[in-house]
Nucleic acid binder design. Structure first.
Length: 863
RNA sequence: GGGCGCUUAGCUCAGCGGUAGAGCACUCGCCUUACAAGCGAGGGGUCACUGGUUCGAACCCAGUAGCGCCCACCA
């Protein structure tokens, strides 16, 4: 047994990097594909190479690390696979911004040089992220780190694209898509954020006299591209106009009035201008009625239509068009401000422009159906279950997925076009014929992320990793990307892996917020940088703070104070172990037989196993807050506050008692450190090694629940001791007796089991044997046990009277309440027996308390 | 416009049918030799509101108000 000279305060920085490097060097985190144990695998949701890890990542990683570390301790063959995402548009934007600082655009560099530049950036940024993961303590298998654009994953992308293409699930079509006029690319629905923006609803008269019709719009400039007006088929107001032509103002063009079910007769005037090239609904109306599509804006949303508006940006064109219409007396009404939902590019916040263009799509119908069914029939469990509904809403009503992006950073679409317009999808080992040119676009970044659970394991090759670790055991991620990402992994996983789901369980956590429940944002200045906390409070405290707030699917509020509290907890564990080491606690000897243990020993062992059971249960439900809470209170309130104090007394006895106490103490701390290790890997490693002289708690076994340690009698007895001690302490505090001041006392423990604790109680309460005379006494009782204190005339009668009065009032109130219950016939008739028994016991207790308190009050000296 | 959730101590939350809890903050007393990043004691809540079910409701049901989140092609 080594007893290193531990400092009195835990200094995280001293141990963290040292431990981490050793863990990696020892290969503790490396999955052994051929090894024993049930597989337990997690793929890390790959952070974007853009930027650095934020506190939300710290939560996400902490949860996964907790799960994987516990699984490792339980003897599973674990794999936690790390990696990063190339994050197409996000990364390209970041690098473009860097270039802009030098006054360059990506076009100045050219495609090849630009992509090279992004790769450089990826190397730097990626390295930073890996360093952060090490600081957090992530026990990932570094030998299997992947990147969504590495060779293997690119091959997987190309392979699945080819399969989908050949199955007719990928197609190219001219559709209205979301277009970002700043990024100059198509966006999928989920890359568009909607917000209620202020606009102006303008009513415009088309046509003249009886043949005129009033339409309402928030986007007046698009009228230049109108090719019809639509009304509801059953709208009698306009029945006479359907089939006729009206004149489109400013252009002189004649456009038809058509009848379409989509129009809501109760909104506005009940008549809708139809711009098929610039509105998704209008596009559908146009298609149904064979209307032409007239594109009036270019890719930068600059008006290209002939006339005075040509060359104006859409936001300049709008007032210009309105002014021109007003000049012609066409404006019938204006409503301002008018709030309506407007889509913004999720990357650059530019207002998205619906745009008619030729893009690649995935036909999601069959894939989404399978993805829904897998959760519906329980092959994949969503946790918490309430969130499954959101998942269903999404997959059951999913639009086809636009996967082409007019970007340079990403997986190039593996389709080549021949000189005669041939279209050829090229597989990973195929070469396109000469004279063919490749599609210039790249794939949506989520396309490669969707393959992550199997592409990282070697797919399309049937590697041993894939065989062993797919489906992965659990996916841990925030509820915010339940459909961004999870639904897509489900779709592609089921498709590529012959109907096998990518994960058995999806465990969703919430977002990290500040102490007031506010979202963290740079502009608000409430962002927490995990590295900052790690530096000041340690990685363990940072993790513990996050985990303490982590209930399935709910947001986590954190603050500086709580980080400090967690740091204090680390310190508490540190000092408890330090005490144990200084007092010769040992794990070398087996636990003595129960008959050789004291009540206190049996109590703490009973509590330990209760906690093991509770923690194991909480793990089943991913209740990290409960796990943390259980261990926190057991460690602090029971082990430190009571058992350590009782152990001091037992050790002072010397002999066998001391020896056995050292064994129990060593045993309890050993188990506690192992239970805490997944949550706080660094401090537990340092302490466990010191305590056990073994190499690493990382590969120690998880404490096994042993119900034979359950000892309700010991628990009751210690609780009674605690209550009596608390009562006496309260008296001392109320009386203003200094903690160290010794008081003479007679203990009336009724010859009950508590009599055995007299010595301990005298020590903990600083009570001496009674002196020969009593000038003033106080009798304190809990249940049938009592302590009589001789305060040598120093008793503060007023304080004591106040205290007793208060207790008496409480007891009387309790007695009245309970009596009312017992007098209630219906309660007596209908309440279950155990409830009635409890109430009776409370009544008896209350009566006894009243009698006792009244006697004490009567015995108080007057004046 | 749909859907979901929340409202419990100053703050963040747990409890989800039988005596209102935790952490932090607050008050008082203590350097009681593992720990002052600590120890002991204490104060603080008509569990949003209104009805209903029940012997009994913070907990179940209905409605009201406020807050939040997600989804959405009503011009």
């Amino acid at each position: 047994m080594t007893t290193p000279d531990l400092p009195t305060q835990y200094a995280p920085a001293d141990v963290e990097t040292r431990s981490y490097e050793r863990w990696v060097a020892e290969g503790y985190f490396t999955a052994d594909v051929g090894g024993g144990g049930e597989p337990y695998s997690i793929v890390l949701p790959p952070p974007n190479v853009t930027g650095v890890l934020h506190i939300g990542h710290a939560l996400d990683h902490s949860i996964q690390d907790v799960l994987i570390r516990r699984a490792r301790m339980r003897g599973h063959q674990t794999l936690w696979l790390p990696g990063m995402d190339h994050a197409g548009i996000a990364t390209q934007n970041v690098v473009e911004r860097e270039l802009a600082k030098q006054g360059l655009s990506r076009h100045d560099l050219g495609r090849e040089a630009f992509v090279e530049r992004v790769w450089q950036w990826k190397e730097e940024s990626g390295g930073r992220i890996l360093g952060q993961m090490a600081k957090l303590g992530d026990s990932v298998d570094w030998t299997r780190e992947r990147f969504t654009m590495d060779d293997g994953l690119s091959r997987a992308v190309q392979t699945i694209f080819k399969h989908l293409f050949d199955d007719g699930l990928i197609y190219r079509a001219e559709r209205i898509i979301n277009w970002c006029p700043r990024c100059l690319t198509a966006l999928s629905d989920i890359e568009v954020d909607h917000s209620d923006d202020e606009g102006e609803l303008i009513s415009i008269r088309y046509g003249e006299g009886d043949a005129s019709i009033v339409v309402a719009t928030t986007r007046a400039e698009t009228m230049l591209g109108d090719t019809a007006v639509a009304v509801h088929p059953s709208d009698e107001r306009y029945a006479h106009l359907v089939g006729t032509m009206v004149e489109l103002p400013l252009t002189g063009r004649m456009i038809p009035v058509v009848a379409d079910e989509h129009v809501d007769p109760s909104f506005g005037t009940g008549a809708v201008k139809v711009t098929p090239a610039h509105d998704p609904n209008d596009f559908e109306i146009g298609r149904r009625h064979g209307l032409p599509s007239l594109t009036i804006m270019d890719e930068r949303a600059v008006v290209t239509a002939h006339g005075p508006f040509q060359g104006l940006d859409r936001f300049e064109a709008r007032p210009a068009v309105v002014a021109a219409l007003r000049a012609e007396g066409r404006i019938v009404a204006e409503k301002r401000p008018y709030l309506h939902a407007v889509g913004h590019c999720s990357r650059c916040k530019t207002v998205v422009e619906p745009r008619l263009s030729l893009q690649w799509f995935v036909n999601v119908q069959p894939l989404a159906k399978a993805a829904g069914d897998a959760v519906r029939d329980g092959r994949t469990r969503v946790h918490p279950p309430e969130l499954a509904k959101r998942y269903f809403d999404w997959v059951d009503d999913m639009h086809d997925w636009c996967i082409s992006r007019q970007l340079w950073w990403g997986h190039r679409i593996p389709v080549w076009y021949g000189p005669e317009g041939e279209v050829l999808c090229v597989g990973p080992d195929e070469e396109p014929p000469p004279g063919y040119t490749q599609d210039p676009d790249v794939l949506d970044t989520w396309f490669s992320s969707a393959l992550w659970p199997f592409s990282t394991l070697g797919w399309p090759e049937r590697t041993p990793e894939l065989e062993r670790f797919y489906p992965t055991t659990v996916l841990v991620t925030g509820y915010d990307i339940l459909f961004f990402w999870v639904a897509r992994m489900m779709m592609f996983g089921l498709y590529a892996m012959d109907g096998e789901t990518p994960f058995r369980t999806v465990a969703l956590h919430g977002m990290v917020r500040d102490q007031f429940g506010k979202k963290m944002s740079k502009s608000f200045g409430n962002v927490v940088d995990p590295l900052d906390w790690i530096e000041r409070y340690g990685a363990d405290a940072t993790r513990f703070t996050l985990l303490r707030g982590a209930s399935p699917g709910s947001d986590v509020a954190i603050s500086e104070d709580w980080a400090a509290g967690s740091r204090n907890f680390c310190n508490k564990i540190w000092n408890a172990t330090r005490f144990a080491l200084l007092n010769g606690a040992t794990v070398a000897s087996p636990l003595p037989a129960p008959g050789d243990l004291t009540v206190a020993d049996r109590w703490i062992l009973s509590r330990l196993h209760t906690v093991i059971g509770a923690v194991d249960t909480a793990y089943e439900d991913f209740e990290f807050a409960k796990i943390s809470d259980q261990l926190y209170h057991f460690a602090w309130d029971e082990v430190c506050d009571w058992y350590v104090e009782l152990a001091k007394i037992q050790i002072a006895e010397g002999g066998d008692r001391a020896e056995r106490t050292r064994v129990v103490l060593g045993h309890v701390l050993d188990a506690l450190l192992r239970l805490l290790h997944p949550l706080m890997p660094f401090v537990t490693e340092e302490l466990w090694r010191a305590l056990t002289a073994r190499p690493s708690v990382v590969v120690a076994s998880w404490p096994a629940l042993d119900a034979s340690y359950a000892d309700p009698a010991a628990e009751r007895e210690i609780v009674a001791v605690q209550e009596l001690i608390t009562e006496v302490r309260r008296f001392r505090s109320d009386q203003g007796l200094k903690p160290g001041q010794r008081v003479a006392a007679r203990l009336s423990l009724d010859g009950s089991a508590l009599a055995a604790h007299e010595g301990a109680m005298r020590t903990l309460l600083r009570l001496d044997a009674p002196g020969p005379t009593f000038s003033a006494t106080a009798r304190l009782a809990v249940g049938t046990s009592a302590v009589e204190l001789d305060t040598a005339g120093a008793i503060d009668v007023a304080a004591e009277r106040k205290r007793l009065d208060k207790d008496l009032a409480a007891a009387r109130k309790e007695a009245a309440q309970v009596a009312a219950k017992l007098a209630n016939e219906q309660f007596m008739a209908k309440a279950p027996d155990d409830v009635v028994t409890k109430v009776r016991a409370r009544a008896a207790q209350a009566d006894a308390d009243i009698a006792r308190l009244e006697a004490q009050l009567a015995a108080l000296p007057t004046g």
